[in-house]
Amino acid sequence: MSETPLVHLENIVVRLGDKMVLDEINLKVFTGDRLVILGQSGSGKSTMLRLILGILRPISGVVRYRRLQVQKLSRSKLNLFRSRVGMVYQDSALISSMTVRENLALPVEELSRKPRKEINALIKENLEMVGMSGTEEKLPSELSGGMRKRVSLARAMMMQPELILFDEPTAGLDPVISSVIDELMINLSGKTNTTSIIVTHEMDSAFKVATRMAMLYQGKIIEETTPDRFRASANPVVRQFVTGTTEGPITKTPLNADSSK
């Protein structure tokens, strides 16, 4: 592909303490992609999302968003860039003291001068999109895990972002709700051509939503291809991860918990 990638990680190195989290990572994400990044817990998947958002800085390498170099952005430009990117956290990260309406209105009220009427219309539209109409006045504590995830996705969509980052979007959810979230992610990119980077280690969900898949193992991307080719990969690590067998090269010793947290 000759087009400019939306996100481009170039030779990224991240080390936390003695642990090499990301070792010379190169990755391109193009507009419209639904890239699923797979890997064991603690392999640096969430770290990659935080790098893209500029929350974490690499030891070396460059994170580009279109032609912008994220690490070199001033504070105000970084905030402007972040407003174009949505993020859905593993635990939703809704502001617990705010209602659903306030959570959704927050980025728009803080970052734009849209009138109240327009903000309310956006809230209604996004809640409808995720099937959560009628929950505007509820607090996050009154919602189930799956509902919070959907509200979190609606919040991420409020600024009509070009890119959405999903950190374990289906972790801890039952299969039905997981499928609902998967379908939301697929519909989202279909309707709005939003690019998605999805971090997960749930294979069913990954194969369902991905247009491309990358496998992170011991700080390196060892495979990056289409879902079909990923499933048929000859790489023993990928094969073991896809089949979920205990026999194989993946170490049985769990790595440290996600190092960026």
Partner: peptide, 12 residues
């Protein structure tokens, strides 16, 4: 609970 990071990630 990552709420602070979420606020930062929104550009606030």
């Amino acid at each position: 609970s990552e709420e602070v990071e979420a606020i930062e990630a929104m550009g606030i």
